[in-house]
Each structure stands twice: as C-alpha cells, then as structure tokens.
Amino acid sequence: MKSNCFRFLIAMFIAIGITIPLAAQEGTKDAVKPAAKKDDSAERIREINKEITAKRAEILPKIRKAKPGSPEYTELLTEYYGVADEFADEIIELAGDNPSNRVAATLMSGLMRSQNKEVVTKVTDAMLASAKADPTSRKSFATLMTLMSSPNRKAAAEATELLLAGVKEDPKSNNSFSVLMSLMNSRTLKPMTKAEATELLLANFGDSEKMADLAMGMTRGPISTGNVKLLERLLDESEFDSVKAATSFALGKHFSANAGTKDKGMKLLKSIVEKYPDVIVGRTNLAKTVEGEIFEAENLQIGMKVPDIIGEDVDGVEFKLSDYKGKVVVIDFWGDW
C-alpha cells in the first residue's frame, strides 16, 4: 500500500513517456487513408504531420534517456508536445473541414497535451463544437469523455452535462456506466456527488458483473463507510466470482491498511488466493497481485527473519542471500534507469 502512489507515478511516466510518443507515431502510419473531401487539405494534413513527427523524432531519444520525473524530463515532454503549437490554428481548421481524417484527429488529441493553455483551450473548444454537431455518434462520446477531464473547465463542464443527459436517457447503457464510473473516480469537476454517481451505478448495474470494475475503482484511495457497506453487500450477494474477488480485494486492502482491522483485511486478501486463483478483473489476476502483499505482510516486516533469495547473478552464477549469513546485509532492489 505504501507505494501505491509510486506505482501510479511509474505507470504514468511510462504512459506519457513511451506510449504516447509511440501512439503518435503509429497514428502517422495509419494516416495514409486520404480524406474524402478535399485532396488538398488531406495533403496539407500529411505535410504538417510529417513535419511534427520529424521534429519529435529528434526529441524522443533524449526523453528516453532522461530520468522520468526529473525537471529535464518534464521540460523535454513540454518541448515534445509543444512542437505542434505553431500549427494549432491550421490543424483545428483542417480537422474541422475533414472530420473523418484520422491524422487530423490524432493531431488534435496531440494538441490537447500542449503546455500552452491558449492552444489547449482552442482545441478543446473546437472538439466540443464538433461533438455537439453530431452528439449521438461513438466518436463524439469518446471526445466528450476526453473533454470531461480537460483543464478547459468550461468545455469540461459542458461535456459532462451532455454526457449526463445521455445517462438520464438510457441509464443502463455501457456508455452510462463509463460516464458514472468516471464521475465516481473524478477528482476535479463534480456536477454530481460521488454518492449520487455510486447510487445510480448500483441502481442500474448492481446485479451485473460490472460491479467488479466499481470495486476496483474504489481501491485508489480510502473507502468511505458507506462504500464499505456497499462492497460488503456486493461480496455477499453477487453471483459473479469476479465481483467477489474484486470486492474482497478492495475491502482487504482497506482493512489491512489499519492496525486495528489488519487481520480482517489479510483474511479477505487470502480468500482471493484460495477461492479465486484464476479470476481476472480488467487484465489483472488479483490472486497473483495479493500474493505479494501477503508475502510482504507475513515475511518482510521489521523484526522478521529475512527470507532467503536463491537466484543467479548478472554473470549467470548461482548464489543465495544466505551465503552472506553472519554479515550485515543491505538488499537493494535497483535498476540503471
């Protein structure tokens, strides 16, 4: 638990540092499909994309070398995304004229990552306008979901409102589930309280397997008393193993974080390994995840005899931690990155 936040940071750096640059580049390759409307503008979109890609290709190796989280790394990322700033107006116009052009769409979402506030505002406003023009399409839904967490508060508020209108209309749809989940986990703008979102989720999806996602969504922070009760009810009543495993996970983590309820928490975590060893929630095998937590709690606390490590060294020679018995030992989990 202690390093959940750290893990999140690592995940974020990986996501920002690697996935996005790669995704941006992949987007480029797909992009050959020409826009139906105007050959000239499709050509221009390709040109802009090529120029941005070339400039970014120069920065990318530096990003890979920089230490994630360092000021240099942040600066490089700003530079990386800022490359597109000078084309912002042109991209917005071209994307508006060629709504089905995928390169233009990729360029638009790239602009959302700019550190230039003005650029972000312009792009998000334009995206909102295009989503409003075609409010029921799948693409618009995705756009609105993205906008919901945009730093452009006005656009975010409007997008949220539109999405909530959709929830009202068809509360049991998959889209509604996504909207409510994202509101429940949102830390910023809340036109609806967490409790209200939770209530709607429960009313419309309470007897479905989707409740596993709901439980996993609660593992990110301390769980309120109300939600603890809710999770306990789900654990009791759900017919799905995934829901039982996920609620045990959320409750187990919650309880084992406090000295007073630690035993109860550990029991719940262990129940996942015993009862649901193969259950996958999202893409995670929860039993595998909690095995580490249990091992740490039972073997790696201060005052406990250190477990042996048997393995090979960097040169492939086998050795054991216990080879160093009788010595004071510092064990350092490290990497040269």
Partner: peptide, 26 residues
C-alpha cells in the same frame, strides 16, 4: 520473480538485515 515475490513497487527499495538475519530497517 524476485521483486514480484517481495512485492516491490518502487525502485530503489532497500532492506537492511542484521548479522543474525533479521530485517531491521526498510
């Protein structure tokens, strides 16, 4: 396998073990 078993989620993670083989600091 080793970092997974030891539930390591942040790097570096440090353990200090005394001469009797007891974990004393983290």
């Amino acid at each position: 396998p080793i970092s997974t078993k030891w539930n390591v989620r942040g790097w570096p993670t440090i353990y200090v073990v005394d001469a009797k083989g007891v974990i004393r600091y983290k």
